[in-house]
Design a protein around this nucleic acid. Structure first.
Lengths: 222, 222
DNA sequence: GCGAAGGTGTAATAGGCATTACACCCTTGC
DNA sequence: GCAAGGGTGTAATGCCTATTACACCTTCGC
């Protein structure tokens, strides 16, 4: 029963291979990266790659699904911290921005998209574990607010869609233009989320009825 | 001087090859499509492909940039037809929806994204001729309205960005999920554009002060 | 009909890379 | 120390496909 040592050793190998593969895939794309490249960077041996992952596709799956975490936990937390819809949405937006700003995430999205032709199931599975899950989490938020009597225009489903669109479109643009066309500043994000909040009819409903009904400042036209 | 006949003949060949290549690239992706596939479908000969396009990459460029038309003309027309911002934007939205619903457009976007790693210039050039041009056209619209005294919240630049995001994000989702996750109905589009109009503070400013100020039907909360 | 310009078809070249096979070395538990 | 099992390194296999070369056939103006 020499399980533990073997496991550890193999495990270290596995880690090194996955890390090397992820960075190489991100740099060069999947097709252009040869297994030799990966072995050269990770150390170890080609034979090990086949022993652990079966083949190149198997390795890709491990790499992608390890990194393809949904942001749902972050969304729950942002909600749990409390505050008005506006405050929560700004927090969520910050979290999503950080997540999608990661160049490795963009690179993986590129790979998934290019493989989505040959392997629809793979891509769809990625979609379900990321975008669809984010959507569901966000939808829950709007449902909560709706249930607690906060007025909004549009269904939770539609609002969640629109909110995420702001981020997917940025990832999309980044994937094509390699960041040439995009300003990822915090100010831009703030403006966009404020825009969303107006569209959703969520402009601060003062739960405390102390303040004025939100005098729209003309400062928005930057 | 036998220019015309030669030209015509070559031209017919060229057309057939581009058409075959475009449909095959859309079906299978660029890497998976061999020049043999293309010649088999187009008829003619491999040698002709090399004579006309130089190599496989040259063929791809022709295919992509022929199809990658900007929607700017459509945007100008939608504006020229007149009407309130709301009316114009709904028209533009319809046009963009039609454009981006074309599966071949989505397929080409997939290809451009996957090649954007190895050939940044190619992808960027695509971006400039499509998204960036659409953005510029749309921005002009908002500038016109702004100049003519119609109040709006946000800069023309930002508004144009936000408007296009609704479509880019759909293309992005389609590219990954192959349409599994998306409803492209006209109703959804209408709701989204109404959302945008609220966010932009453009909710019908009656230029003609005859009618009622556009009674917003509560049908929005579908 | 004829000759030439230009397409066509096919076979050869060449290189790349996933995948497999195999002999060697090193760690590990006794 | 030592035997065994599991990693390692490398070479071989095999397939695929871009690209080239070349001999043949069509078309078109005359």
């Amino acid at each position: 029963m020499t399980e533990l040592p073997d496991f550890c050793r193999l495990d270290r190998r596995k880690r090194a291979i996955i890390d090397a593969a992820r960075s190489l895939f991100a740099e060069q794309g999947y097709e252009r990266t040869t297994l030799k490249d990966i072995v050269d960077r990770a150390g170890g041996s080609l034979a090990t790659v086949y022993k652990v992952f079966g083949n190149k596709d198997g390795l890709l799956e491990e790499v992608v699904f390890e990194k393809a975490a949904s942001a749902d936990v972050m969304i729950q937390q942002a909600f749990a911290q409390g505050g008005s819809p506006s405050e929560v949405l700004h927090r969520v937006g910050d979290g999503l921005r950080t997540h999608f700003l990661d160049p490795e995430v963009v690179a993986l999205v590129r790979i998934v998209i290019s493989r989505s032709v040959e392997d629809v199931d793979f891509a769809r599975s990625f979609y379900e574990r990321t975008a669809q899950r984010d959507h569901a989490s966000l939808k829950t938020l709007f449902e909560h607010w709706q249930a607690s009597g906060i007025p909004m225009i549009g269904t939770p489903d539609m609002l969640s869609d629109m909110f995420l669109d702001m981020f997917f479109s940025d990832v999309h643009t980044d994937a094509i233009s390699h960041g040439a066309g995009l300003d990822h500043s915090r100010e831009r994000l703030r403006d966009r989320i404020d825009f969303f909040i107006r569209g959703a009819g969520l402009s601060d409903q003062p739960l405390d009825k102390g303040g004025t009904p939100e005098m729209k400042s003309p400062a928005n036209s930057r």
